[in-house]
Design a binder for these strands. Structure first.
Length: 408
RNA sequence: CGGGGUGUAGCUCAGUUGGCUAGAGCGCUUGGUUUGGGACCAAGAGGCCGAAGGUUCAAGUCCUUUCACCCCGACCA
Protein backbone atom coordinates (compact mmCIF):
# COMPACT_ATOMS: atom_id res chain seq x y z
CA UNK A 1 0.00 0.00 0.00
CA UNK A 2 1.30 3.41 -0.97
CA UNK A 3 0.68 5.87 1.79
CA UNK A 4 0.04 8.62 -0.74
CA UNK A 5 -3.05 6.65 -1.75
CA UNK A 6 -4.13 5.64 1.74
CA UNK A 7 -7.59 6.99 2.53
CA UNK A 8 -6.74 8.34 5.94
CA UNK A 9 -4.17 10.82 7.10
CA UNK A 10 -2.80 11.08 10.57
CA UNK A 11 -3.76 14.04 12.69
CA UNK A 12 -1.15 16.18 14.29
CA UNK A 13 -3.50 17.11 17.10
CA UNK A 14 -5.18 14.27 18.89
CA UNK A 15 -8.85 14.71 19.74
CA UNK A 16 -8.71 16.75 22.89
CA UNK A 17 -11.30 14.87 24.87
CA UNK A 18 -9.87 11.43 24.18
CA UNK A 19 -8.16 10.38 27.38
CA UNK A 20 -7.21 6.74 27.03
CA UNK A 21 -4.16 5.87 24.94
CA UNK A 22 -6.13 3.61 22.65
CA UNK A 23 -8.84 6.16 21.96
CA UNK A 24 -6.26 8.85 21.31
CA UNK A 25 -3.85 6.94 19.11
CA UNK A 26 -6.44 4.97 17.17
CA UNK A 27 -8.19 8.23 16.30
CA UNK A 28 -5.04 10.21 15.67
CA UNK A 29 -3.47 7.49 13.54
CA UNK A 30 -6.55 7.10 11.36
CA UNK A 31 -7.63 3.65 12.54
CA UNK A 32 -11.14 4.62 13.60
CA UNK A 33 -13.63 7.45 13.14
CA UNK A 34 -16.50 8.19 15.48
CA UNK A 35 -19.98 8.54 14.01
CA UNK A 36 -21.75 8.86 17.36
CA UNK A 37 -20.92 8.01 20.94
CA UNK A 38 -19.78 4.39 21.07
CA UNK A 39 -20.17 3.87 17.32
CA UNK A 40 -17.14 3.88 15.07
CA UNK A 41 -16.14 3.36 11.48
CA UNK A 42 -13.23 0.97 11.22
CA UNK A 43 -11.02 2.77 8.72
CA UNK A 44 -8.65 0.84 6.43
CA UNK A 45 -5.83 0.64 8.97
CA UNK A 46 -8.15 -0.25 11.83
CA UNK A 47 -10.07 -2.81 9.82
CA UNK A 48 -6.81 -4.53 8.91
CA UNK A 49 -6.03 -4.92 12.60
CA UNK A 50 -9.47 -6.33 13.34
CA UNK A 51 -9.10 -8.77 10.47
CA UNK A 52 -5.73 -9.93 11.74
CA UNK A 53 -7.25 -10.57 15.14
CA UNK A 54 -10.28 -12.26 13.58
CA UNK A 55 -8.04 -14.55 11.54
CA UNK A 56 -6.18 -15.68 14.64
CA UNK A 57 -9.50 -16.32 16.38
CA UNK A 58 -10.82 -18.24 13.37
CA UNK A 59 -7.76 -20.46 13.30
CA UNK A 60 -8.07 -21.33 16.97
CA UNK A 61 -11.85 -21.77 16.92
CA UNK A 62 -11.64 -23.97 13.84
CA UNK A 63 -8.98 -26.15 15.38
CA UNK A 64 -11.21 -26.53 18.44
CA UNK A 65 -13.90 -27.88 16.13
CA UNK A 66 -15.87 -24.67 15.70
CA UNK A 67 -17.82 -24.07 12.50
CA UNK A 68 -18.19 -20.49 11.37
CA UNK A 69 -21.50 -19.09 10.19
CA UNK A 70 -23.39 -15.82 10.34
CA UNK A 71 -26.66 -15.18 12.13
CA UNK A 72 -29.08 -12.28 11.70
CA UNK A 73 -28.67 -9.06 13.63
CA UNK A 74 -32.36 -8.26 13.32
CA UNK A 75 -34.32 -10.48 15.69
CA UNK A 76 -37.96 -11.11 16.55
CA UNK A 77 -39.35 -10.62 20.03
CA UNK A 78 -40.95 -14.04 20.33
CA UNK A 79 -37.78 -16.11 20.75
CA UNK A 80 -36.57 -13.69 23.40
CA UNK A 81 -39.84 -13.98 25.27
CA UNK A 82 -39.38 -17.71 25.55
CA UNK A 83 -36.41 -17.15 27.85
CA UNK A 84 -37.72 -14.03 29.53
CA UNK A 85 -34.81 -12.02 28.28
CA UNK A 86 -36.88 -9.61 26.18
CA UNK A 87 -37.72 -8.14 29.57
CA UNK A 88 -34.46 -8.67 31.50
CA UNK A 89 -32.31 -7.35 28.69
CA UNK A 90 -34.54 -4.47 27.68
CA UNK A 91 -32.17 -1.93 29.19
CA UNK A 92 -29.26 -3.07 27.10
CA UNK A 93 -30.98 -4.34 23.97
CA UNK A 94 -32.12 -2.04 21.20
CA UNK A 95 -35.81 -2.79 20.87
CA UNK A 96 -38.27 -1.14 18.55
CA UNK A 97 -41.30 -1.68 16.37
CA UNK A 98 -40.99 -2.09 12.65
CA UNK A 99 -43.51 -0.30 10.52
CA UNK A 100 -46.10 -2.97 10.77
CA UNK A 101 -45.84 -2.66 14.54
CA UNK A 102 -43.91 -5.90 15.03
CA UNK A 103 -41.60 -5.87 18.06
CA UNK A 104 -38.05 -6.29 16.88
CA UNK A 105 -34.61 -6.18 18.45
CA UNK A 106 -31.00 -5.78 17.40
CA UNK A 107 -28.73 -8.61 18.46
CA UNK A 108 -26.98 -7.91 21.74
CA UNK A 109 -26.03 -11.59 21.87
CA UNK A 110 -27.28 -14.67 20.05
CA UNK A 111 -28.23 -17.47 22.42
CA UNK A 112 -31.91 -17.26 21.52
CA UNK A 113 -31.28 -17.20 17.80
CA UNK A 114 -28.86 -20.08 17.83
CA UNK A 115 -30.87 -22.19 20.23
CA UNK A 116 -33.90 -21.82 18.01
CA UNK A 117 -31.74 -23.02 15.14
CA UNK A 118 -30.42 -25.95 17.15
CA UNK A 119 -33.78 -27.21 18.41
CA UNK A 120 -35.08 -27.34 14.86
CA UNK A 121 -32.00 -29.08 13.44
CA UNK A 122 -30.65 -31.30 16.18
CA UNK A 123 -32.63 -34.28 17.35
CA UNK A 124 -30.14 -37.09 17.88
CA UNK A 125 -27.05 -37.75 19.99
CA UNK A 126 -25.34 -38.34 16.65
CA UNK A 127 -25.53 -34.61 15.94
CA UNK A 128 -23.73 -33.71 19.16
CA UNK A 129 -21.51 -32.26 20.44
CA UNK A 130 -21.60 -29.23 18.22
CA UNK A 131 -19.68 -25.98 18.18
CA UNK A 132 -20.77 -23.00 16.08
CA UNK A 133 -19.53 -19.45 15.96
CA UNK A 134 -19.76 -16.17 14.15
CA UNK A 135 -17.95 -12.87 13.93
CA UNK A 136 -20.36 -9.99 13.82
CA UNK A 137 -21.25 -6.59 15.18
CA UNK A 138 -23.24 -6.62 18.39
CA UNK A 139 -25.50 -3.83 19.58
CA UNK A 140 -25.80 -2.85 23.20
CA UNK A 141 -27.43 0.26 24.48
CA UNK A 142 -24.81 1.04 27.09
CA UNK A 143 -25.72 3.78 29.51
CA UNK A 144 -22.40 5.32 28.79
CA UNK A 145 -20.09 4.45 25.94
CA UNK A 146 -16.49 5.28 26.73
CA UNK A 147 -12.86 5.04 25.78
CA UNK A 148 -13.26 4.75 22.02
CA UNK A 149 -13.39 1.05 21.21
CA UNK A 150 -13.25 0.09 24.89
CA UNK A 151 -16.99 0.24 25.42
CA UNK A 152 -19.05 0.72 22.30
CA UNK A 153 -22.73 0.53 21.51
CA UNK A 154 -21.94 -1.27 18.30
CA UNK A 155 -18.86 -3.44 18.44
CA UNK A 156 -17.29 -6.45 16.82
CA UNK A 157 -17.52 -9.75 18.60
CA UNK A 158 -16.74 -13.39 18.08
CA UNK A 159 -19.38 -15.50 19.78
CA UNK A 160 -19.20 -19.25 19.87
CA UNK A 161 -21.85 -21.61 21.24
CA UNK A 162 -21.32 -25.24 22.10
CA UNK A 163 -23.97 -27.93 22.57
CA UNK A 164 -23.70 -31.15 24.52
CA UNK A 165 -25.72 -34.00 25.89
CA UNK A 166 -23.83 -34.42 29.15
CA UNK A 167 -22.31 -32.13 31.74
CA UNK A 168 -19.02 -34.05 31.49
CA UNK A 169 -18.86 -33.42 27.79
CA UNK A 170 -19.69 -29.76 28.29
CA UNK A 171 -17.06 -29.39 31.02
CA UNK A 172 -14.45 -30.97 28.82
CA UNK A 173 -15.19 -28.66 25.94
CA UNK A 174 -15.38 -25.64 28.24
CA UNK A 175 -11.87 -26.40 29.45
CA UNK A 176 -10.71 -26.95 25.90
CA UNK A 177 -12.04 -23.51 25.01
CA UNK A 178 -10.16 -21.94 27.92
CA UNK A 179 -6.98 -23.30 26.37
CA UNK A 180 -8.03 -22.11 22.90
CA UNK A 181 -8.72 -18.64 24.29
CA UNK A 182 -5.33 -18.53 25.96
CA UNK A 183 -3.75 -19.31 22.61
CA UNK A 184 -5.71 -16.57 20.90
CA UNK A 185 -4.54 -13.91 23.33
CA UNK A 186 -1.02 -15.17 23.36
CA UNK A 187 -0.87 -15.07 19.57
CA UNK A 188 -2.27 -11.53 19.62
CA UNK A 189 0.46 -10.44 22.00
CA UNK A 190 -1.65 -10.08 25.11
CA UNK A 191 -1.05 -11.49 28.55
CA UNK A 192 -4.35 -12.44 30.14
CA UNK A 193 -5.57 -13.58 33.51
CA UNK A 194 -8.23 -16.27 33.54
CA UNK A 195 -10.60 -14.78 36.04
CA UNK A 196 -13.40 -16.42 37.95
CA UNK A 197 -16.50 -14.25 37.71
CA UNK A 198 -20.19 -14.23 38.33
CA UNK A 199 -22.61 -15.13 35.61
CA UNK A 200 -24.42 -11.85 36.04
CA UNK A 201 -28.08 -11.82 35.21
CA UNK A 202 -27.53 -14.28 32.41
CA UNK A 203 -26.65 -17.42 34.23
CA UNK A 204 -26.42 -18.61 37.78
CA UNK A 205 -23.52 -20.81 36.85
CA UNK A 206 -19.94 -19.77 37.14
CA UNK A 207 -18.17 -18.04 34.33
CA UNK A 208 -14.66 -17.06 33.39
CA UNK A 209 -13.42 -13.74 32.13
CA UNK A 210 -10.18 -13.14 30.31
CA UNK A 211 -8.65 -9.97 31.67
CA UNK A 212 -5.73 -7.84 30.57
CA UNK A 213 -4.07 -5.86 33.34
CA UNK A 214 -4.29 -2.18 32.36
CA UNK A 215 -4.88 1.13 34.11
CA UNK A 216 -7.48 2.11 31.53
CA UNK A 217 -9.56 -0.94 32.40
CA UNK A 218 -12.99 -0.82 33.97
CA UNK A 219 -12.81 -4.04 35.93
CA UNK A 220 -11.13 -4.66 39.23
CA UNK A 221 -9.57 -8.03 39.80
CA UNK A 222 -7.41 -9.92 42.22
CA UNK A 223 -4.69 -11.69 40.29
CA UNK A 224 -1.48 -13.61 40.50
CA UNK A 225 1.46 -11.67 39.03
CA UNK A 226 3.14 -14.92 38.08
CA UNK A 227 0.52 -17.24 36.65
CA UNK A 228 -2.82 -16.53 34.95
CA UNK A 229 -5.02 -16.98 38.01
CA UNK A 230 -7.48 -14.26 38.90
CA UNK A 231 -10.82 -13.48 40.53
CA UNK A 232 -13.16 -10.63 39.71
CA UNK A 233 -13.44 -8.33 42.72
CA UNK A 234 -17.24 -8.62 42.48
CA UNK A 235 -17.04 -12.17 43.75
CA UNK A 236 -13.49 -12.49 45.05
CA UNK A 237 -13.06 -14.20 48.38
CA UNK A 238 -9.30 -13.78 48.16
CA UNK A 239 -7.56 -10.48 48.85
CA UNK A 240 -4.39 -8.82 47.68
CA UNK A 241 -1.54 -10.37 49.62
CA UNK A 242 -3.22 -13.77 49.94
CA UNK A 243 -1.46 -16.76 48.44
CA UNK A 244 -2.34 -17.76 44.89
CA UNK A 245 -4.13 -21.14 45.00
CA UNK A 246 -2.17 -22.25 41.94
CA UNK A 247 1.39 -21.37 42.85
CA UNK A 248 1.35 -19.70 46.26
CA UNK A 249 2.53 -16.38 44.92
CA UNK A 250 1.29 -13.26 46.71
CA UNK A 251 -1.84 -11.96 44.94
CA UNK A 252 -2.26 -8.41 43.70
CA UNK A 253 -5.25 -6.16 43.04
CA UNK A 254 -5.55 -4.10 39.89
CA UNK A 255 -7.59 -2.68 37.09
CA UNK A 256 -8.13 -4.72 33.98
CA UNK A 257 -9.85 -4.86 30.62
CA UNK A 258 -12.22 -7.75 29.97
CA UNK A 259 -11.37 -9.13 26.54
CA UNK A 260 -13.32 -12.35 26.74
CA UNK A 261 -16.03 -14.07 28.71
CA UNK A 262 -17.19 -17.65 28.69
CA UNK A 263 -19.96 -19.33 30.63
CA UNK A 264 -22.21 -22.30 30.91
CA UNK A 265 -25.95 -22.19 30.63
CA UNK A 266 -26.43 -25.85 31.33
CA UNK A 267 -30.00 -26.89 30.58
CA UNK A 268 -31.56 -23.42 30.93
CA UNK A 269 -32.18 -23.11 27.22
CA UNK A 270 -33.32 -26.69 26.86
CA UNK A 271 -36.03 -25.97 29.40
CA UNK A 272 -36.96 -22.47 28.21
CA UNK A 273 -36.89 -23.24 24.53
CA UNK A 274 -37.60 -26.94 24.50
CA UNK A 275 -34.41 -28.33 23.03
CA UNK A 276 -34.04 -32.07 23.40
CA UNK A 277 -32.22 -34.84 21.58
CA UNK A 278 -32.59 -38.60 21.71
CA UNK A 279 -29.77 -40.65 23.19
CA UNK A 280 -28.44 -44.01 22.05
CA UNK A 281 -30.84 -45.86 24.27
CA UNK A 282 -33.85 -43.87 23.17
CA UNK A 283 -33.97 -41.40 26.06
CA UNK A 284 -34.83 -37.73 25.60
CA UNK A 285 -32.05 -35.52 26.95
CA UNK A 286 -31.81 -31.73 27.22
CA UNK A 287 -29.32 -30.11 24.85
CA UNK A 288 -26.88 -28.24 27.10
CA UNK A 289 -25.30 -25.00 25.98
CA UNK A 290 -22.30 -22.83 26.80
CA UNK A 291 -21.30 -19.48 25.29
CA UNK A 292 -17.87 -18.08 24.55
CA UNK A 293 -17.31 -14.45 23.56
CA UNK A 294 -14.37 -12.32 22.53
CA UNK A 295 -14.81 -8.60 21.96
CA UNK A 296 -12.64 -8.14 18.91
CA UNK A 297 -12.80 -4.37 18.70
CA UNK A 298 -12.18 -4.08 22.41
CA UNK A 299 -9.28 -6.47 22.10
CA UNK A 300 -7.75 -4.07 19.58
CA UNK A 301 -8.15 -1.24 22.09
CA UNK A 302 -6.61 -3.37 24.83
CA UNK A 303 -3.63 -4.06 22.59
CA UNK A 304 -3.00 -0.35 22.23
CA UNK A 305 -3.42 0.23 25.95
CA UNK A 306 -0.71 -2.33 26.62
CA UNK A 307 1.55 -1.67 23.64
CA UNK A 308 2.28 2.03 23.21
CA UNK A 309 4.69 4.76 24.18
CA UNK A 310 4.59 8.55 24.15
CA UNK A 311 4.95 8.60 20.37
CA UNK A 312 2.26 6.14 19.40
CA UNK A 313 1.29 2.53 19.02
CA UNK A 314 3.67 -0.45 19.03
CA UNK A 315 1.72 -3.24 17.34
CA UNK A 316 2.73 -6.84 17.95
CA UNK A 317 3.69 -8.45 14.63
CA UNK A 318 0.72 -10.78 14.53
CA UNK A 319 -1.91 -8.05 14.56
CA UNK A 320 -0.13 -5.09 12.95
CA UNK A 321 -2.03 -3.64 9.97
CA UNK A 322 1.15 -4.07 7.91
CA UNK A 323 4.37 -5.90 8.67
CA UNK A 324 6.61 -2.95 7.89
CA UNK A 325 6.66 0.74 7.13
CA UNK A 326 8.90 1.51 4.18
CA UNK A 327 10.06 5.10 4.10
CA UNK A 328 11.78 6.87 1.25
CA UNK A 329 13.95 9.87 2.00
CA UNK A 330 15.88 12.28 -0.19
CA UNK A 331 13.64 11.76 -3.20
CA UNK A 332 15.39 8.65 -4.38
CA UNK A 333 14.04 6.09 -6.82
CA UNK A 334 15.61 3.15 -5.03
CA UNK A 335 12.75 3.10 -2.54
CA UNK A 336 10.27 2.59 -5.38
CA UNK A 337 12.25 -0.38 -6.62
CA UNK A 338 12.53 -1.82 -3.13
CA UNK A 339 8.78 -1.46 -2.70
CA UNK A 340 8.04 -3.21 -5.97
CA UNK A 341 10.31 -6.10 -5.06
CA UNK A 342 8.82 -6.42 -1.57
CA UNK A 343 5.30 -6.45 -2.99
CA UNK A 344 6.24 -9.05 -5.60
CA UNK A 345 7.63 -11.25 -2.86
CA UNK A 346 4.34 -10.95 -1.01
CA UNK A 347 5.52 -8.71 1.81
CA UNK A 348 2.88 -6.78 3.70
CA UNK A 349 4.26 -3.26 3.47
CA UNK A 350 3.01 0.27 3.91
CA UNK A 351 5.17 2.50 1.73
CA UNK A 352 5.47 6.16 2.64
CA UNK A 353 6.08 7.60 -0.80
CA UNK A 354 4.75 11.04 0.08
CA UNK A 355 6.72 14.15 -0.74
CA UNK A 356 7.01 15.45 2.80
CA UNK A 357 9.78 16.02 5.29
CA UNK A 358 11.62 13.20 6.99
CA UNK A 359 10.47 14.24 10.43
CA UNK A 360 6.86 13.98 9.44
CA UNK A 361 7.35 10.50 8.03
CA UNK A 362 9.12 9.31 11.16
CA UNK A 363 6.47 10.80 13.39
CA UNK A 364 3.73 9.08 11.39
CA UNK A 365 5.60 5.79 11.43
CA UNK A 366 5.92 5.98 15.21
CA UNK A 367 2.25 6.86 15.59
CA UNK A 368 0.94 4.11 13.31
CA UNK A 369 3.31 1.70 15.00
CA UNK A 370 4.20 -0.99 12.46
CA UNK A 371 6.73 -3.50 13.84
CA UNK A 372 9.52 -2.62 11.41
CA UNK A 373 10.60 0.66 9.89
CA UNK A 374 12.56 0.39 6.65
CA UNK A 375 14.33 3.52 5.52
CA UNK A 376 15.76 3.87 2.04
CA UNK A 377 17.75 7.04 1.39
CA UNK A 378 20.91 8.33 -0.22
CA UNK A 379 22.62 7.64 3.09
CA UNK A 380 21.78 3.95 3.13
CA UNK A 381 23.39 3.20 -0.22
CA UNK A 382 22.25 -0.15 -1.54
CA UNK A 383 21.27 -1.25 1.94
CA UNK A 384 18.10 -0.69 3.89
CA UNK A 385 18.03 0.77 7.34
CA UNK A 386 15.90 -1.43 9.57
CA UNK A 387 14.56 -0.34 12.93
CA UNK A 388 12.11 -2.09 15.17
CA UNK A 389 9.34 0.14 16.47
CA UNK A 390 10.04 -1.22 19.92
CA UNK A 391 13.73 -0.33 19.80
CA UNK A 392 15.91 2.73 19.23
CA UNK A 393 18.63 0.86 17.41
CA UNK A 394 18.78 0.54 13.68
CA UNK A 395 21.00 -1.40 11.35
CA UNK A 396 21.80 -1.47 7.66
CA UNK A 397 20.91 -4.75 5.99
CA UNK A 398 20.47 -6.12 2.50
CA UNK A 399 17.14 -6.65 0.77
CA UNK A 400 17.24 -10.41 1.20
CA UNK A 401 17.64 -10.08 4.92
CA UNK A 402 14.69 -7.71 5.04
CA UNK A 403 12.58 -10.26 3.20
CA UNK A 404 13.66 -12.91 5.65
CA UNK A 405 12.80 -10.68 8.58
CA UNK A 406 9.33 -9.93 7.25
CA UNK A 407 8.48 -13.54 6.52
CA UNK A 408 9.27 -14.66 10.06
C1' C B 1 -30.26 8.84 34.97
C1' G B 2 -27.24 12.14 38.89
C1' G B 3 -22.72 15.30 39.00
C1' G B 4 -18.93 18.03 36.16
C1' G B 5 -17.29 19.99 31.46
C1' U B 6 -17.35 21.31 26.15
C1' G B 7 -19.80 22.84 21.30
C1' U B 8 -16.61 29.07 16.99
C1' A B 9 -12.90 26.69 9.74
C1' G B 10 -11.33 19.65 8.28
C1' C B 11 -8.32 19.41 13.43
C1' U B 12 -6.61 22.00 18.16
C1' C B 13 -8.21 26.41 20.09
C1' A B 14 -8.51 32.22 21.10
C1' G B 15 -12.40 35.76 21.02
C1' U B 16 -12.24 41.16 27.15
C1' U B 17 -17.61 44.69 30.76
C1' G B 18 -22.51 42.64 24.46
C1' G B 19 -20.04 47.03 19.76
C1' C B 20 -17.60 47.89 13.25
C1' U B 21 -16.22 43.20 7.85
C1' A B 22 -15.21 36.68 13.47
C1' G B 23 -9.34 35.25 14.44
C1' A B 24 -4.65 32.08 15.07
C1' G B 25 -1.84 27.57 14.46
C1' C B 26 -2.07 23.05 11.95
C1' G B 27 -4.38 20.88 7.60
C1' C B 28 -6.11 22.00 2.34
C1' U B 29 -5.14 24.57 -2.95
C1' U B 30 -1.35 27.04 -6.30
C1' G B 31 3.80 28.46 -7.20
C1' G B 32 8.78 28.29 -5.44
C1' U B 33 12.83 26.90 -2.02
C1' U B 34 13.78 22.61 1.08
C1' U B 35 14.58 17.24 2.56
C1' G B 36 17.49 11.93 8.50
C1' G B 37 12.78 13.76 13.53
C1' G B 38 6.25 17.09 12.43
C1' A B 39 10.99 22.77 7.36
C1' C B 40 10.27 27.76 4.86
C1' C B 41 8.45 31.94 1.59
C1' A B 42 4.38 33.94 -1.20
C1' A B 43 -0.63 33.90 -2.80
C1' G B 44 -5.47 31.64 -1.96
C1' A B 45 -10.00 28.71 -0.54
C1' G B 46 -12.68 27.60 3.68
C1' G B 47 -17.66 29.94 9.12
C1' C B 48 -25.91 30.94 9.60
C1' C B 49 -20.15 30.83 16.00
C1' G B 50 -24.35 23.08 17.43
C1' A B 51 -29.98 24.17 16.72
C1' A B 52 -34.53 26.96 17.96
C1' G B 53 -36.68 30.92 20.41
C1' G B 54 -36.07 35.46 23.28
C1' U B 55 -33.84 40.26 25.43
C1' U B 56 -31.35 44.56 22.94
C1' C B 57 -30.23 50.07 18.69
C1' A B 58 -26.64 45.91 18.54
C1' A B 59 -25.68 38.80 20.45
C1' G B 60 -20.14 34.22 19.26
C1' U B 61 -20.82 36.97 24.01
C1' C B 62 -26.93 37.70 28.04
C1' C B 63 -31.70 34.52 29.00
C1' U B 64 -34.84 30.04 27.90
C1' U B 65 -35.37 25.50 25.51
C1' U B 66 -33.13 21.63 22.91
C1' C B 67 -29.38 18.49 20.46
C1' A B 68 -24.52 16.45 20.58
C1' C B 69 -19.78 14.98 22.59
C1' C B 70 -16.24 14.06 26.78
C1' C B 71 -15.18 12.84 32.06
C1' C B 72 -16.84 10.81 37.12
C1' G B 73 -20.74 7.82 39.16
C1' A B 74 -24.71 4.38 38.69
C1' C B 75 -25.07 0.32 35.00
C1' C B 76 -22.80 -3.65 32.19
C1' A B 77 -22.28 -10.91 28.22
Amino acid sequence: MRQSKLFTKTQKNPPQDALSASHKYLTQGGFIDMLMAGVYTYLPLGYRVLNKIADIIRAEMNSAGGQEMLMPTLQPKNIWEETGRWETLKEVMYQFQDRSGKETGLGATHEEVIYDLIRRNVSSYKDLPLSLYQIQNKFRNELRAKGGLMRGREFMMKDLYSFHLSQEDLDGYYNQMIEAYKKVYQRCGLEVKVVEASGGIFTKKYSHEFQVIAEAGEDNIIYCPKCDFGQNSEIAKLKAGDACPQDGESLKAGKSIEVGNIFQFGDKYAKDMNGYATTKDGQKQPILMASYGIGISRLAAALVEVHHDEKGIIWPKSVAPFAAHLISLNKNETADEVYEILIKKGADVLYDDRDISAGEKFADADLIGLPYRLVVSSKSGDKIEVKKRSSDKSELVGLNEVLKLLSE
